[in-house]
């Protein structure tokens, strides 16, 4: 399974660029190492994502004009840095299989010097907010509401337990990510 869902590939590449300018190839390699697992990113997707980031002013090209795409070195802009910070601070909408996006956020927070615990706390708050809403709906609802809300609540609870365990292992993960 690809660790990073389509939505966050751009943010993942941007976050990796915070470590310094890189060629598209290097970027793909670090991405695959950290998030690609058994499904590496296609070159086409790397370059199309970089082209989009370039168009949006989130990265700039550092190489001399005329060089082929594979020789271009990409650097993150100030706007790109703010974009990553904004993405890390914004909790995700609670939904199943969120752990892949959250894992990416935590690793990138550690790589870019943001507080990874803040990412987890923001997400916990968002999950709890939804759990409160579902609890109210369940307690005031009929049996069908109760069963449906319970299902969602158990899944959100599982996510929260994952957030807790990740928070407890954050030092370990930081040491590994920075090694």
């Amino acid at each position: 399974m690809c660790i990073v869902l389509g939505m966050s590939v751009g943010h993942a590449l941007l976050g990796l660029l915070e470590g310094g300018p890189r060629h598209g190839y290097d970027l793909k390699r670090s991405y695959d190492e950290r998030f690609g697992q058994d499904r590496p990113l296609a070159y086409g997707q790397v370059y199309s994502t970089l082209a989009r980031l370039l168009r949006n002013g989130l990265v700039e090209v550092e190489s001399e004009p005329g060089a082929g795409p594979e020789r271009k070195k990409y650097a993150i802009t100030d706007a790109g840095v703010s974009d990553v910070a904004g993405w890390l601070a914004q909790p995700e909408k609670p939904e199943p299989y969120l752990q892949s996006t959250l894992y990416t956020k935590v690793v990138l927070a550690l790589l870019t010097g943001h507080d990874a615990a803040d990412v987890l706390d923001a997400q916990r708050a968002e999950h709890l907010r939804l759990m409160r809403e579902l609890t109210r709906r369940r307690d005031g609802g009929d049996l069908a509401d109760q069963l449906i809300c319970d299902h969602a609540l158990f899944h959100l609870e599982a996510d929260l337990r994952w957030l807790e365990v990740t928070a407890a292992r954050i030092q370990q993960l930081a040491a590994q990510v920075r090694a």
Binding site: A117, D121, A122, L128, T135, L153
Partner: peptide, 26 residues
């Protein structure tokens, strides 16, 4: 420590290593 119990609260404060993490997000 149970999220389903905490869901009955209006706000939460998370304590870690004796410190309270802010509850501003809530």
């Amino acid at each position: 420590h149970e999220p389903r119990v905490a869901a009955y609260s209006d706000h939460e404060a998370v304590v870690r290593d004796g410190r309270v993490r802010t509850r501003e997000y809530a």
